[in-house]
Amino acid sequence: MGDVISELGGIRSRVSGASADAQAGWTGEAAAEAARAAAEMDGVLRRLTGSLENLRELVQMSAAGFTAAEQQQAADVRAAAAGLNDGIASR
């Protein structure tokens, strides 16, 4: 999960840089709309990163308390999610 959080941080930086470069020559309403969209994207990525960090902390705190049955249930959920993701990706 740490890798995903780091990757999102990199994406956020690249989007911010690309947005600033693109907006450099814009004026008026186009510049304002581009700035609004960039700020919204930044906010979404910031919230997503924060949520993943919170989830990571919760998982780490609860990891010691998992029973064998809970670990099996978690594996079953991951397997089901992987199957769903494979089906979505193949569309």
Score class of each variant (00 low, 15 high):
D3V: 13
A31S: 07
N54R: 12
T49K: 09
G50V: 01
V77H: 13
A89L: 14
D42R: 07
G17P: 01
A63Y: 10
D86I: 13
V4I: 12
A31C: 04
Q60C: 01
I5S: 02
A35I: 02
G50I: 08
L55G: 06
G83W: 09
R56Q: 03
S19K: 00
A89W: 03
G50P: 08
T27Y: 07
R91V: 12
L48K: 09
L48C: 06
G43I: 00
A75T: 10
A24N: 05
E53Y: 06
E53A: 12
L84S: 12
S6W: 09
S16T: 11
A89H: 14
M41A: 13
Q71E: 10
E7A: 14
D86S: 15
S6C: 04
G9R: 08
A81N: 15
T67A: 04
D86G: 14
Q71F: 08
A89D: 13
M61E: 08
R91S: 15
R46M: 01
F66Q: 15
S6K: 12
L48M: 09
L84V: 15
L55I: 11
D3F: 12
A39H: 01
A79I: 06
Q71T: 08
A63I: 04
T27D: 11
A82P: 08
R12D: 03
I11Y: 05
M1N: 13
V4D: 00
D21G: 09
E29I: 08
V59N: 10
E70Y: 01
A80H: 13
A63V: 05
R12A: 11
L45E: 00
E33C: 05
R36E: 14
M41Q: 10
R46W: 08
S19W: 03
E7C: 04
A75F: 04
S62M: 05
E7S: 11
E40A: 06
